[in-house]
Structure formats: C-alpha cells, structure tokens
C-alpha cells in the first residue's frame, strides 16, 4: 500500500467518525432541548398516529412545499428529483459495498444509472433558481452554492468514472471492502476516483455542521412533530413548570 492510500484510508475513517459523532451529537442536542409549549402549526393532528401520518408525506413528498406557488412547484420538481435520485444512486453504490452482491441491488442498477443522469439536471434547477430570482439572490449564502457545487462535482465525477475514464472496478471494490472490514487496501489507480471519493468525504464531514441537518431536523420540528392535544393531555417540559 502506498503513502497516498494510507492517508486516504485514514481520512475515510476520520470522516466517518466525524459524520457519525457529529450527527448523533445534533440528534442528542435536539432531543435534550425541551419544547416548553405546544406549538404545532394547526390544523394539526391530535394524536401521535396522526402526527406520523402528517410527517410521512412531509418527508417523502415535501407536502408543505407543494402548498406554494409556481416557484415552489419548480423547486419541488428540482428538489424531489434530486433527493430521490440521490437515494437511488446511493443504493446503486451498494454493489461496491457488498460481497456477494444481493440480487436486489443488481436489479437496481439500470434505475440507478438513469438516476445518475437526472441528478445533475435536478441540481442545475436548484442552482439556477438561486441567481435568477431576486428574492433567492438576496437570501442565498456562500454555503448554499458551496454544497450544491460540491454535490454536482460528486455527480459529475461519478458520471466520468462510469462513462469516460473507467476505473478498474475490482480495485475499487477491494478498496471499499478493505475500508469496511478494517483491512485497508490499495487506492485504485485513478485520479478521478480519488477526487470523487475525496469529495464524498468532504460532504460527509460537512454534513453535521450545516443546513444538511434538515434531514434530521424535519423529524423533530415541533410545528410538525407535535400533536395538537392540549385539551387531552397536559404538556410539561422540565424547566417550564
């Protein structure tokens, strides 16, 4: 194993640690921070089951976003395709993480590749709307472009690896399985792969400290996650007695 491989292997472990600890840290922080009052945006369900039923379409279909006008519909299309294709791409990548590869993941490949092609288009929608609308231009920050460009770069290097500068997949798989089994292996001999992999590490390390935490935040946002039941039960938080 060469020096670069050692560094990248180490970085991968550090990144994984940062991601997991950072993410869990936020989960625990939110959990420990109380909701002193009931503040669901009403009309809201009055039971926990109702809250679950409200949350599912919020998470899967961005339901509240669909309540908006044309701009939100465009955003919905871009955002929804982006999230779904991202998920499909990640699932497709499982074939690099498993041995032997389960049949279901292999059955997925065609869909995953289609997703890979749609992915940059969806991201393009998301980035273009940020500077073509005067309201978006005002609210957009450096980090909004940063994360979009980062993800676009991950997508494009992925497509490069798939279609133009193909890497030896046996090497890739050996490297990834090496990481997973804690028996570090040689990095595949491919600069594009190195960039692709490196950018993914950046994304993972950045995740817990950024707006990407909306992935967890959506589940604990009190306006959506609370039941509207002050008549049925007394809601009490530790400090607010």
């Amino acid at each position: 194993m060469n020096g670069l491989s050692t560094v990248i292997n180490l970085l991968a472990y550090v990144t994984a640690l940062v991601f997991v600890v950072g993410f869990l840290n936020k989960v625990i922080l939110y959990f420990k921070t109380p909701n002193p009052l009931l503040i669901p945006t009403t009309p809201a369900p009055t039971t926990t089951m109702g809250v679950v039923a409200r949350m599912i379409p919020e998470v899967l279909f961005f339901r509240s976003l669909l309540k908006g006008g044309t701009a939100e519909k465009v955003l919905w299309v871009g955002g929804w395709i982006f999230h779904v294709t991202f998920l499909l791409i990640v699932l497709r990548h499982l074939r690099f993480f498993t041995y032997p590869v389960p049949g279901i993941i292999m059955a997925f490949q065609g869909l995953g590749i289609l997703a890979g092609l749609l992915f940059p288009i969806a991201l393009l929608i998301l980035i273009v709307r940020r500077f073509t609308n005067d309201r978006m231009a005002v609210i957009t920050l450096f980090q909004d472009y940063f994360v979009l460009i980062l993800i676009i770069a991950i997508g494009l290097t992925g497509l490069l690896l798939k279609y133009y500068v193909r890497t030896n997949l046996v090497d890739v798989k050996a490297f990834i399985l090496g990481l997973l089994t804690f028996s570090p292996a040689q990095l595949p001999d491919s600069p594009i792969f190195l960039i692709h992999f490196g950018l993914v590490l950046v994304l993972l390390a950045y995740f817990p400290f950024s707006k990407l935490m909306h992935a967890w935040g959506i589940l604990v946002s009190p306006t959506r996650a609370q039941a509207d039941n002050p008549r049925e039960a007394r809601h009490v938080a530790p400090w607010a007695q």
Binding site: K26, S64, L65, G68, A71, E72, L75, G79, R129, N133, R135, M136, I139, T140, L141, D144, K211, M213, H214, G217, I218, S221
Partner: peptide, 9 residues
C-alpha cells in the same frame, strides 16, 4: 436556526 436550507418558499 439549524435546519433552514434557504429554499425560498
């Protein structure tokens, strides 16, 4: 404060 993605909705 953490979770806003500045989507503009």
């Amino acid at each position: 404060l953490d979770e806003c993605v500045r989507c503009g909705a």
